[in-house]
Design a protein around this nucleic acid. Structure first.
Length: 275
DNA sequence: ATGGTGGTGATACCA
């Protein structure tokens, strides 16, 4: 017998598209096929003025964007109303830019949707490591941890999704030895990721699939996709109030096999919607 | 094997 109480679920996906201009039709098709109700995008590589809000509106989706020319850029696309938009990490500490400059990178956008707080984030890559870019990555992660902890006080369902540029565990990399010394595998990067978990956030995919390979990125080079030389760096981190609503989570490998794909494939979770 | 591919934008830079 199924439950007598009707529950609605929503699918929330995160996808680093490596240029929304290059991946526009891929994203529109993905949404048209009903593969996400809320989609978090990263690496738009376009300015706010060039974001195709109208194209998404035509297929029934609202969208908010924090863009930047050529680099970075994040967005949230949703079937449901999007409220209380925050562009850039809120409540940040000192500016976390490289060489003491202000953090002008468009790497974080947050909004409230259906009683939930949802963020799309694009963590700095951090290579070469060590170096100023790695220092920037760690400062950015520390700022994110502060924001994440503050958000927990709301006791709302919170989902912090995006390209974390961190492989949490050995199983999240086809060959950890090949990534020795890389910023995505560095112990400090992983420690900062696990600090988020220890503060109360659940990795949606590992909650549903505790073991086994579930890659979200395959390099364009050296036939990485064909050889399945992948890594898992795209994550959906959930507050307790969101994790308790989690029904399913997985990766959408099909997108990586298409013509002119992003080097990332979507990661999604299904949650029951708050009443 | 210190390469390889892809996006941006017009050249190196980023990943």
């Amino acid at each position: 017998m199924t439950s007598s109480v009707m529950t609605k679920t929503a699918r929330i996906a995160t996808w680093n598209v490596n240029s929304l201009k290059a991946r526009r039709e891929h994203v529109l098709t993905y949404l048209s096929e009903g593969k996400a109700d809320i989609l978090l995008l990263q690496e738009l590589k376009l300015q706010d003025a060039d974001f195709p809000h109208d194209a998404f509106k035509e297929i029934g989706f609202s969208s908010v964007c924090h863009g930047q020319k050529t680099y970075n850029g994040v967005a949230i696309i949703s079937r449901f109303d999007i409220e209380n938009i925050v562009r850039g990490l809120p409540n940040g500490e000192a500016p976390a830019g490289i060489d003491g400059e202000a953090d002008t990178h468009a790497r974080y956008i947050q909004a409230d949707i259906k009683g939930m707080t949802i963020a799309s984030l694009y963590l700095p890559n951090g290579n070469p490591c060590p170096g100023p870019k790695f220092d920037y990555k760690l400062r950015w992660m520390k700022r994110l941890a502060g924001v994440a902890e503050t958000l927990l006080h709301s006791e709302r369902p919170i989902i912090l999704g995006g390209d974390y540029n961190v492989m949490p565990q050995d199983v999240d990399c086809y060959d950890p030895n090949a990534w020795e010394g890389d910023a995505l595998w560095h112990p400090d990067s992983r420690a900062a990721f696990f600090a988020l978990a220890h503060s109360g956030y659940t990795d949606a995919l590992r909650s549903i699939h505790p073991t086994g390979e579930k890659f979200s990125f395959w390099d364009y080079q050296a036939g990485a996709w064909q050889k399945n030389n992948g890594i898992r760096i795209d994550h959906l981190m959930m507050s307790p109030e969101a994790a308790s609503r989690l029904c399913a989570a997985d990766v959408d490998n099909a997108e990586r096999g298409k013509e002119r794909p992003s080097d990332h494939t979507p990661v999604y979770c299904d949650i029951t919607l708050p009443a």
